[in-house]
Computed example of a mutant assay.
Amino acid sequence: MSMAQVIQDAWNIQAKWLVVLRPLSCLYKIGFNLNKTLYQKGFKKSYTAPVPVMVIGNITVGGSGKTPLLIHLVEYLTQKHVRVGVISRGYGGKGPFPCYVDTQATAETVGDEPALIVQSTGVPMAVGPNRQQSIELLLSKHDLDLIICDDGLQHWALNRQIEWIVLDNNRGLGNQKLLPEGYLREPVDRLKTGTVIEHAAHPQSELHMHLAPAQPYLLNRTEYQTFDPNLPYYAVVGIGFPQRFYHTLESLEIQQFQCHEFPDHHDYEIEDLDFEDHYPIITTEKDAVKIMALLKQNPEYNRDIWVVPVEAVLSPACYQVLKQQLLEQGISIS
């Protein structure tokens, strides 16, 4: 097991030994605050795009549900005739950057989440560590009303007009410590400066969302098969908070599944999908993007792989706030 996975597991159970990492957290805090101050004081330059920018991010490391939220917002805004584009760091992708993402782009090149976003929505998208270059690439190809930045909440080099911070109450804030003692990227009081969208089954605020699973589908079969929740499955998952996926499986009344966890954005090898028997695999859409590319390289692989799609469901107040925030930027939707 890698050290990153060891620390991830320790965060999830709030292990007491994490206190030995406090000196590193202090260094992280000093460096983070210094970098932020340099941008705020103008010693480092921030880029202001010619169209409004909306950042969707979180203050924690690991999954919070922001990708399904982004996909839903892209679909919603497109239906409202808002010309929207998306940029992302392209974490896990090898580039070269900036890279325009189309429906043929692979996770190996652009990252798993950008590949999923474009395959799900067809939205214009560009990825790369330099967000300005990504925006300029997008605008050279499309006339856009709004750009959504996937993650990038802590990317001070990019000015933004709207910030949505996804707070996953299922996972919480852990020990509320900064990296690496805890899994916070920023102090808790950062939640006071953006629009907080509570991700919870039993929310406490008006601005909330949850993920609703849809019927699982087969990734590697052309013929129709009915999904059977009574079978035993291998739950293969490489996301930031795999426990959420296990809860989803339980909500689908899948009682028998063996967990096989990998680090977030894991680069799968065919050996990761080999087991001694022939029971099927079940996984997330984010993982499926990488697994599908792997299956194309290994056409002899014949184990059934089921994928569980999820959709973000937002409270009515989220749409009201979004409409008001966009109106303030000169974008009117009915």
Rank of each mutant, 00 (worst) to 15 (best):
K44S: 07
K290H: 05
G128K: 00
A212W: 11
L294I: 09
Q225P: 09
E285R: 13
G240Q: 02
V20S: 03
L73E: 03
Q225K: 15
D150P: 01
F227S: 06
T109H: 05
G57Q: 12
C318A: 15
G174D: 10
L21H: 02
V310H: 02
F241M: 09
F43I: 11
F262T: 02
S140D: 01
R22H: 14
Y268M: 06
M292I: 10
I282F: 04
D272N: 12
T109Q: 11
G63T: 05
Q8R: 11
L70R: 07
P180L: 07
F32W: 12
Y279T: 13
V86W: 00
Y217K: 14
S120P: 04
P52W: 15
V6L: 11
D9W: 07
S140Y: 00
G93E: 01
G330T: 13
H142V: 10
P114S: 14
G122Y: 08
G62Q: 12
A214L: 14
V82S: 00
I197F: 05
E276Q: 14
K94G: 06
H155C: 10
I291Y: 09
L178C: 05
R160W: 08
H265D: 09
N159S: 12
V236A: 08
P187K: 08
K296W: 04
Q329L: 10
K177I: 10
Y279S: 09
D168I: 14
K44D: 01
L178F: 13
V188H: 11
V82I: 08
N220R: 11
G172M: 04
T222A: 10
L207F: 05
W17V: 09
D150A: 05
V321D: 07
P280N: 08
W156Q: 12
D143Y: 05
